[in-house]
């Protein structure tokens, strides 16, 4: 019971935090805490096989899948914890409390018998005992789960697969498209400005500075902008750049002004 009393508060705390943290990644990590704790509880409950499965399958496989998807999807407005449906949060809280109270009160009324313990059942080892059950009493359910898993795998492939309806765009087509867009909409045909090129830092979260000293929004990733983790170029940085520019003006004036014009057009 010592294990339980140590882990139980941690688990409840972690679970509660899932409700309130803003970022999905944090939620996933908190869930990992809960799941690891659960694994330990399984171990303490004489279920070594489930302990292993909980760590390998749940924490190892499923949570990692969650993290993969999170990275694919990126960050968007859904991470906000601001409620959009009127009354939803209040009602959810009230109902949740009522539900919890009902469960707790209801379960408190139950008279629990003495604990039998699994010593007898696990006499020949937990895994062989489970295998005995799984391949005898639960054989049909077990086979049905295999069918379910295959169906799920195929289903996931079908859902995630994207059919290519048009031929793949190769370099000549891409070049032609860019020039056409430049001609029609005036979009800059060249590559976007690299982040940090004209700034003091060349990290990806630092926007490039345009010749007039303003930061170029095009030079930073959209995901970073959504997360709000862009470093601002300080006024000192701008002054530094301007000073450097004026020092090298004599040698590079014509070239840099041309490039500046082009960038103006691109915007």
């Amino acid at each position: 019971m010592t294990v339980f009393w140590i882990l139980a508060p941690i688990m409840v705390l972690a679970a509660l935090c899932i409700l309130f943290v803003r970022k999905a990644v944090h939620a996933a990590l908190l869930l990992a805490v809960v799941m690891m704790s659960l694994a330990m509880l399984y171990a303490s409950l004489d279920a070594p096989f489930l302990f292993a499965v909980q760590i390998i399958v749940y924490t190892g496989a499923i949570l990692m899948l969650f993290l993969f998807v999170l990275m694919l999807v990126g960050v968007d407005a859904s991470d906000s914890v601001v409620e959009t449906i009127r009354g939803q949060r209040l009602l959810a809280t009230v109902l949740g409390l009522v539900f919890g109270a009902t469960l707790v009160i209801g379960l408190s009324q139950v008279t629990w018998g003495t604990v039998v313990g699994l010593d007898e059942a696990n006499a020949g080892g937990n895994v062989p005992a489970l295998a005995n059950l799984l391949f005898s009493k639960y054989i049909f359910a077990f086979e049905a789960t295999s069918a379910l898993l295959i169906t799920a795998a195929v289903g996931a492939m079908v859902l995630a697969h994207r059919e290519k309806l048009t031929p793949k765009e190769k370099q000549p087509e891409a070049a032609a498209r860019r020039m056409r867009e430049y001609a029609e909409t005036g979009r800059h045909p060249g590559p976007l400005p690299a982040p940090g090129v004209f700034a003091r830092h060349n990290a990806v979260d630092t926007p490039a500075l345009l010749p007039d000293g303003s930061p170029s929004q095009e030079s930073i990733s959209r995901v970073l902008a959504a997360r709000g983790t862009i470093r601002s170029a300080s006024v000192d940085d701008v002054d530094d750049v301007q000073r450097q520019l004026s020092a090298t003006e004599s040698s590079e004036s014509s070239e840099s002004s041309d490039r500046a014009d082009e960038q103006e057009d691109g915007q």
Partner: peptide, 19 residues
């Protein structure tokens, strides 16, 4: 989420009834 809320409400009713 609204539908889920009503499902929870239904679950509470069932639990209370059993109780």
């Amino acid at each position: 989420r609204s539908y889920a809320l009503s499902i929870l409400a239904g679950a509470i009713l069932v639990a209370l009834a059993m109780l």
